[in-house]
Simulated assay, not measured.
Amino acid sequence: MARVAIVTGGTRGIGEAISVALKDHGITVAANYAGNEERARAFTERTGIKSYKWDVADHQACLDGVAQVEAELGPVDIVVNNAGITRDSTLLKQTWEQWQEVIDTNLGGCFNMAKAAFPGMRERGWGRIVNIGSINGQAGQYGQVNYAAAKSGIHGFTKALAQEGARFGVTVNAIAPGYIDTDMVAAVPPDVLAKIVAKIPVGRLGKAEEIARGVLFLTGEDSGFVTGSTLSINGGQHMY
């Protein structure tokens, strides 16, 4: 029986690349999304991957969503916590709502999804959780105290949960992408983007498929000795 994976934020950008890569490796994938139903329908029609709508910041919605996936596809063996949002602003201008929304989605979503899926993985003696962090959670970024705090928290969450899962065959790892050629980065003004690329030693933006290949490694059957690690995929921009 094929492994079953949930990829949060799995219908676009990095998440879409991860969903497709897992499917291409024989894994049954459920792609979670939060709001863009038209985009999700197009994704499912294009890839054949079923999409499921719930907000990862909503604890009960995550419990219900995982239960629905398991009822329809089978026990969840792999969770990729990719869903994330930005609400950029300097601290002086940032509202409490902007802070809390990013924390609840980016970091809280990891807790909510792990809470829903980790117990079953532990009982079955096999599981893979991959949390998508960020270079900005490692190095910080002006105007992103909320985002950097949430992503940095993901790295600590990963190391702690890895210790809980290790002896039960459940690995927990993180990937910290650098600047990737997605819709979010494409919206950056050209002059600003040029300055970003100039700081990347390999001289280009990353590709979503390059992040997906990292996920494939960390979720593989033969990756059981890798846990509590953060894989930085950033073109050498930040070596940590």
Results as ranks from 00 to 15, higher is better:
128 R>P: 03
128 R>S: 01
129 I>S: 08
131 N>H: 03
132 I>F: 06
132 I>Y: 01
133 G>D: 00
133 G>W: 11
134 S>Q: 02
134 S>F: 05
136 N>K: 12
138 Q>V: 07
141 Q>T: 02
141 Q>I: 03
142 Y>Q: 13
144 Q>N: 11
145 V>H: 10
145 V>G: 07
145 V>R: 06
147 Y>D: 02
147 Y>S: 09
148 A>Y: 02
150 A>R: 01
152 S>G: 15
152 S>R: 09
152 S>T: 14
153 G>Y: 11
153 G>Q: 11
155 H>V: 14
155 H>L: 15
156 G>E: 08
157 F>Q: 00
159 K>D: 00
159 K>F: 11
160 A>R: 13
161 L>K: 02
162 A>T: 11
162 A>Q: 03
162 A>M: 01
163 Q>E: 10
163 Q>D: 08
164 E>Q: 13
165 G>V: 03
166 A>S: 12
167 R>P: 00
169 G>P: 06
169 G>F: 07
169 G>W: 05
170 V>I: 10
170 V>D: 03
171 T>P: 03
172 V>E: 07
172 V>K: 03
174 A>I: 03
175 I>N: 06
177 P>I: 05
180 I>T: 11
181 D>M: 06
181 D>Y: 01
182 T>Q: 02
182 T>K: 03
183 D>G: 11
183 D>N: 13
184 M>E: 01
186 A>N: 15
189 P>L: 04
189 P>R: 04
189 P>C: 14
190 P>R: 07
191 D>I: 06
192 V>N: 10
192 V>M: 14
192 V>P: 01
194 A>Y: 04
195 K>H: 12
197 V>R: 08
198 A>S: 15
199 K>V: 12
199 K>W: 07
199 K>H: 11
200 I>L: 05
201 P>Y: 12
201 P>F: 01
201 P>S: 00
201 P>M: 05
201 P>L: 06
202 V>Q: 13
204 R>E: 02
204 R>P: 02
204 R>K: 14
205 L>H: 01
205 L>K: 00
207 K>N: 06
210 E>K: 08
211 I>M: 07
211 I>H: 00
213 R>E: 15
214 G>I: 03
214 G>F: 01
214 G>S: 14
216 L>I: 09
217 F>C: 08
217 F>W: 14
217 F>A: 15
218 L>R: 12
219 T>Y: 07
219 T>S: 12
219 T>L: 09
220 G>L: 10
221 E>S: 15
222 D>C: 02
224 G>R: 06
224 G>V: 01
226 V>P: 09
226 V>H: 08
